[in-house]
Design a binder for these strands. Structure first.
Lengths: 273, 273
DNA sequence: GCTGATATCTTATGCCGTAAGGAGTTGTCG
DNA sequence: CGACAACTCCTTACGGCATAAGATATCAGC
């Protein structure tokens, strides 16, 4: 399931994200044995290695030699912790891309880097996108993508559309790979074995299946290059990724060309559908 | 979080999905008071009205005047129930689209219908895509999309890429709207109010924000038509949706044109990147 | 030393999925 | 008819979760 951000005191969680309002030194009471950073790090370790489903306050506390409840001194709740984890992880992404080769090559690099990021931290795919975390690194990520798309000469409305499209695309591909990787680890069965078992079950349970869905059969027929040592589904996804990226780049180029023709940044020109 | 399908006895859950191996009549024991269909219907009602997070075995049982445990007579577990819900809901989608106007208009209709479906049943967005449910209606959905894309003359590999791209796009847009709709219902604050509150908090907590991210400011600047009575974010998404769809259609057209030129269904022709 | 703020722990509440086993119902066979 | 087996449904219980409430220990400044 999608994990939602904390609804609690919005001011406090924003302050945590932007590290503002740090406590002054020399306060009464025992020295803090932990820190927000240490907690976020431990939580990311848990999520990276065992997945979002295994992330619990107790689990994180345990890794720090504390109980789960000890974390509530530093962080308002689990939702806010996830926001912090997410924004921290995003810091890994490049702040800018080489634009000297034009926007197409920069966008390709962006897509590859971003895909790799999601695969390094698959749990980030489960952080809600609609109510953005609004942390510094999320803005930086957006800034760097918009910097590339500015090269197309399109206006803000068009660029917003492409930002969404690009993120949906990369996140979708990453989600497929990330979830497929859980099959072997969760079931002890290789990806390919899982698919073959399912396919033979299909024949058994749904006779005449192939005749009912001839186009499914056609589209699954294999006209691709062999996948080397990549697992079955990951090979499929990497093909899909390059095909999809090519479509996106061509579509963006078409929009940019139309806008250049009209000389208006694509703002007033209606799509030629 | 993403909800994973049941790992249990695969044969049994496939049989449930395809409704094969129905029990013969005249068995000993009390007459079944429930049925798989009744349970799936009740579960869909819960998920539609209260969201996936509120879906629990006890909750569904309660709606049927039973305990949660009673459901285990009919359904192996929660994961399998979700699979059944998903495939049942997919039956709402059109089995075919009007191809007489060409693939562009059919694809536009597909995107709109599919988006509307996800918004009617937002919980379907949380069913894992990598290990497909493999129920009859999931195949039917794929079949109808491939039928449209065949009109482009592209080969299976290219069409697979576009299928993934199109689903990622529509699901991404649907996810954004679906999650944004939970803000008002969960917090009692309108979408727009939520955003304004966040924005003023940003100023407070991150001074100099606008200078740090000038392109974010630029891309968020409003060059769009007024949104009528649509909520803020939904208006943004519907703009984004039409921009994205136009890009996709143009990109697909470019691929199709290149393939037609080479006369090979786009199979051997390398992408011109 | 006292006061009051702070960090941490223990305990408890109310959810969850589901394992285990018992009670009641109904068909078939002797 | 009675016995048995299959079947539905229930109660209880376990171990997990987030987190509220409150007890206890630690420390700075007066």
């Amino acid at each position: 399931m999608v994990v939602y951000a904390g609804q609690g005191d919005a001011r406090r969680s924003m302050a945590l994200l932007w590290r503002s309002g740090e406590p002054n030194e020399a306060r009464p009471g025992p020295k803090p044995g932990l820190s927000v950073d240490a907690i976020v790090d431990a939580a990311i370790e848990v999520a990276d290695s065992e997945g979002m489903a295994a992330l619990s306050m107790r689990r994180v506390g345990e890794r720090l030699g504390r109980t789960g409840m000890a974390l509530y001194t530093y962080v308002p709740g689990k939702g806010e912790l996830i926001d912090l984890m997410y924004d921290r992880a995003l810091a890994e992404l490049p702040a800018e891309y080489d634009l000297s080769g034009g926007w197409r090559s920069a966008l390709t690099a962006w897509a590859e880097q971003t895909l790799a990021f999601y695969l390094r931290h698959p749990w980030t795919l489960q952080v809600s996108q609609a109510r953005p975390v609004l942390g510094p690194n999320e803005f930086a990520m957006l800034e760097s993508l918009v910097a590339i798309l500015r090269g197309t000469g399109l206006g803000p409305r068009r660029v917003r559309g492409m930002v969404a499209l690009l993120f949906d695309f990369v996140r979708g591909a990453a989600t497929t790979v990330a979830e497929s990787r859980q099959v072997p680890s969760a079931t002890g069965v290789s990806d390919e074995e899982w698919w073959q078992a399912r396919a033979s079950l299909l024949d058994e349970v749904a006779p005449g299946f192939a005749d009912r869905f001839p186009l499914v059969r056609w589209v699954e027929s294999d006209d691709s290059e062999p996948g080397g040592d990549e697992p079955y589904l990951e090979h499929r996804v990497s093909e899909t990724f390059s095909v999809g990226l090519a479509v996106l780049l061509d579509g963006i180029e078409a929009a940019a060309a139309r806008a250049a023709q009209n000389g208006n940044g694509g703002q007033a020109a209606p799509p030629s559908t």
